[in-house]
């Protein structure tokens, strides 16, 4: 299987030669070939291309917001309150006279950041927990898996909400809450892979040569699970962005004047009946972004890792 070879990333010795790139290319030739193959496969899949285009567009917008955005996202201008779309303000203005298009563009930075950081935290912790649990097995495995079961016994939004409320409303606390909820998904999957890897011959060889458990988990088990973690991470990025926006919507996420999409909708809701543009535009961007991640994630799963099925 592909996964086994990727493990070589961890096992490689540090190259001593001067030409690092050549060495790198030689050592990882197989992975690079596989990557190229995958990219070509994805390129032939229309939904992967569409998803990728959306994501790339959002990322570009987020990065270029300071250059592209016509106004300052937090500077208030009381004379321009609640202007309808048109003229200088394509998406209209909010109740403090700020340009909604500008805020939506900056909002992309926040939502993408939330998505990525949550997946990194949850993926990292989940993978370590799952790998250790699966590799050590027995009592420890039982205990960890029961804890994961407990976390999975809550609907994700309910648990994230309770946690965020307890930690206090702030963007960082919302990120922690969502990450916590996502950990079991990674832990369970990686555990399954770890159980399989454990039986492989090279592990027995490593153990025979005196390697400790943690060393083996770090150098063999985790690298083997990397590709699955990446696929799962992409798949749940959309969900993560949705939950985080929902938390902001009920007041438990980003705080003003942060231009977070969910928080903007939450305030815009008060003005819905007369100033429809306020709540509408941020929502369109959430929807489009999440669609991008969802269809790209699905395609990636189909192409890269047929083992993961929901």
């Amino acid at each position: 299987m592909a996964g086994e070879r990727i493990g070589a990333w961890g096992r490689g010795k540090r190259p001593l030669r001067i030409n690092v790139f050549d060495e790198f290319r030689r050592q990882y030739a197989w992975q690079i070939r596989e990557l190229g193959f995958m990219v070509r496969l994805l390129g032939r899949n229309p939904s992967a291309v569409a998803g990728f285009a959306i994501i790339a567009g959002m990322v570009a917008m987020a990065l270029a917001a300071p250059v592209l955005a016509p106004f300052n996202p937090i500077q208030i201008s009381l004379g321009d309150r609640l202007l309808p779309p048109g003229g200088a303000h394509w998406f209209g203005t909010d109740e403090l006279g700020r340009d909604i298009l500008t805020r939506v563009m900056y909002g992309a930075r926040i939502s993408l950041w939330i998505g990525v950081i949550v997946v990194v935290i949850a993926g990292g912790l989940g993978a370590v927990i799952g790998a250790v649990s699966g590799y050590l097995g027995r009592r420890f495995d039982d205990l960890i898996m029961r804890v994961m079961d407990v976390i999975l016994s809550f609907p994700p939004l309910v648990l994230a909400m309770a946690l965020a409320a307890a930690l206090g409303p702030s963007l960082n606390n919302a990120i922690l809450a969502v990450a916590f909820v996502m950990i079991p998904k990674f832990a369970r999957m990686v555990r399954g892979e770890a159980l399989a890897v454990k039986e492989k011959q090279f592990i027995a060889a490593a153990r025979a040569s005196g390697a400790g458990s943690l060393w083996i988990v770090w150098h063999h088990v985790l690298p083997n699970c990397l590709s699955s973690v990446i696929v799962l991470g992409t798949l749940i990025l959309g969900e993560t962005i949705l939950i985080a926006a929902s938390l902001s919507f009920i007041g438990l996420g980003a705080q003003p004047p942060t231009p977070e999409w969910g928080a903007m909708i939450s305030v815009g809701r008060k003005f819905l009946m007369d100033q429809w543009w306020y709540a509408t535009f941020p929502g369109v961007f959430i929807l489009v972004t999440v669609i991008g991640f969802n269809i790209f994630g699905d395609a990636l799963r189909d192409v890269l890792d047929p083992r993961i099925r929901r």
């Binding site: 949705l242 926006a245 969910g262 509408t280 941020p282 929502g283 959430i286 929807l287 969802n294």
Partner: peptide, 17 residues
């Protein structure tokens, strides 16, 4: 695809609108 990507609270607001 829209369904699984939809922010429920926003959908509700749009329906109301």
């Amino acid at each position: 695809v829209f369904g699984v990507s939809m922010p429920v609270f926003w959908l509700g607001l749009m329906l109301l609108l």
